[in-house]
Design a protein around this nucleic acid. Structure first.
Lengths: 192, 192
DNA sequence: GCATTATTTGGACAATTGTCCTAATCATGC
DNA sequence: GCATGATTAGGACAATTGTCCAAATAATGC
C-alpha cells in the first residue's frame, strides 16, 4: 500500500522543512516538490496546513518518547541519562546553531501565530520535563524534582537560543559542562 | 515636518507587530492599516520589507542602549543593575508568556529565514552581553566576567522560552529568584 | 478481464503577498 | 497667489498562497 509510506514521507519532509525554515514560511509547494509529488496529490493526504502540522507534532512526540526510552534502556543510572539529555546540545550543535532547538522555535512561532496547536507543541517540552523529573526522583529529589527538571530544560533552551544567535560552539561546550557540574552538585547535596 | 514623525510611527507599529506576530507573518498591509496610512504612502518611506526590519532593529538597539544606560544611572551597584536585568522577566511576564522574548524570537526567526539581518539582530544580544560583562568586571570578576555574562543571558533566555511554552508565571518568579541566588553566590566567591 | 477503489495529476480559484507607479493633495517660499 | 517640492492616495503588477476539483491512472478483488 503506497498510501501509508507516501503519507509518512510527506510528514518526514514537512518535519524537516518546518524545522529548517519555520512553519509559516514553508509552503505546500515546498513540501510537495521536496517529497516528489504533485500539489494535487498532497491534498489527498492532508486537507489543510494545520493537519500537516498536527501530524508533524505527533511524529515529534513519538520520536521524543522513543529517544527518552532509549536513554533509559542504555543508561541504568539517572545521572548518565540526564547527561545524555544535556549532551544533545553538543550532538546537535550544527543544526542548533543554524536553526535553533526544534521544540523551542516551534513553540515560539506557534505562540506568535496564536495557533491552535500551540499547546500540543508544548507537550513535547512536557515529555522532556516529565522524564527529567522522573530521573531526579529516582536520584532521591522529591519536592525539588519538578523544579530541577524545569531548570535543566530552561538552561538547555537558553544555551540553544544564544548558540543560534552567536553561532558559538565553544559556548555550548562550556555551558554543557556547567550543567553537568550543577547536576553533580545537586546529586551531592542529596546524600547529606 | 510630517515626514519624520510618520516614519517614526511606522517603525513603532512595525516593531510591535513584528514582536507580536513575527516578521514573516506581518505584512505591509498590516502595518499600513495599523499606522493609518495607505499602502502607497508606505512605499514612500520604505522600499522593501527588509528596510523596515533594518529600521526596527535600529530602534531596538537604540532602546536597549537607553535601557541599559538607565539602569546604570539608577543603580550605583553592579549587583542591583544585574538584578534589574533579570527582573525584566517579571516586569514583562505577560508579553513574554504570550509572544516570547523580543530578542530571542527575532534571532530565531531570522536564523530560520537565513536572513541577511540575522547578525544585526544578534547585536541586541551583544549589547546585553557586553553590558553584563562590564557589571561583572566592576564586581571584580576578570576572566570569568564574559562567561558569567553569557550565562545570565542564556539563563534568562531559557526562562523566557519555557514561559512562552507553559505560560507559567510561578516558574518565572522561581527562576528569577534562582538567578539572583546564583549571582549572590558568585559575588560571595569573589571576596575570598 | 471487469468493476471498483485508491492514488495521482494538473490546473482552477480567490485572496494575499511585496513591489512599484501615476496622479492627486499638501505645505512652503517667494 | 503661484510655483516647487514633499507627502499621500489608490490601484496595477506578477507571483505565490492555501484550498479545492475533475479527470486520468494505478491497484485490487472477484
Amino acid at each position: 500500500m503506497a498510501s501509508a509510506s507516501t503519507r509518512h514521507n510527506i510528514i518526514e519532509i514537512a518535519d524537516d522543512l518546518f524545522y529548517r525554515g519555520g512553519f509559516e514560511a514553508t509552503s505546500f509547494a515546498d513540501i510537495a516538490v521536496k517529497a516528489g509529488i504533485s500539489r494535487g496529490n498532497f491534498y489527498y493526504y492532508f486537507k489543510t496546513k494545520d493537519e500537516i502540522l498536527d501530524a508533524v507534532i505527533d511524529r515529534r512526540l513519538q520520536r521524543t518518547r522513543a529517544m527518552l526510552d532509549g536513554w533509559e534502556a542504555q543508561a541504568p543510572k539517572p545521572r548518565e541519562r540526564i547527561v545524555a539529555f544535556i549532551e544533545l546540545l553538543i550532538a546537535n550543535r550544527a543544526p542548533i546553531m543554524a536553526h535553533g532547538c526544534p521544540v523551542g522555535t516551534l513553540c515560539a512561532e506557534l505562540a506568535k501565530l496564536d495557533h491552535v496547536h500551540q499547546e500540543r507543541a508544548a507537550e513535547i517540552f512536557g515529555l522532556f520535563a516529565h522524564w527529567l523529573e522522573k530521573q531526579f526522583r529516582v536520584l532521591g529529589a522529591d519536592e525539588a524534582a519538578r523544579e530541577w527538571a524545569l531548570h535543566v530544560l530552561a538552561w538547555s533552551q537558553g544555551v540553544a537560543s544564544l548558540a543560534t544567535a552567536f553561532k558559538d560552539e565553544e559556548f555550548i561546550r562550556r555551558e554543557v559542562a556547567d550543567i553537568a557540574g550543577w547536576l553533580d552538585g545537586r546529586i551531592a547535596s542529596l546524600s547529606n
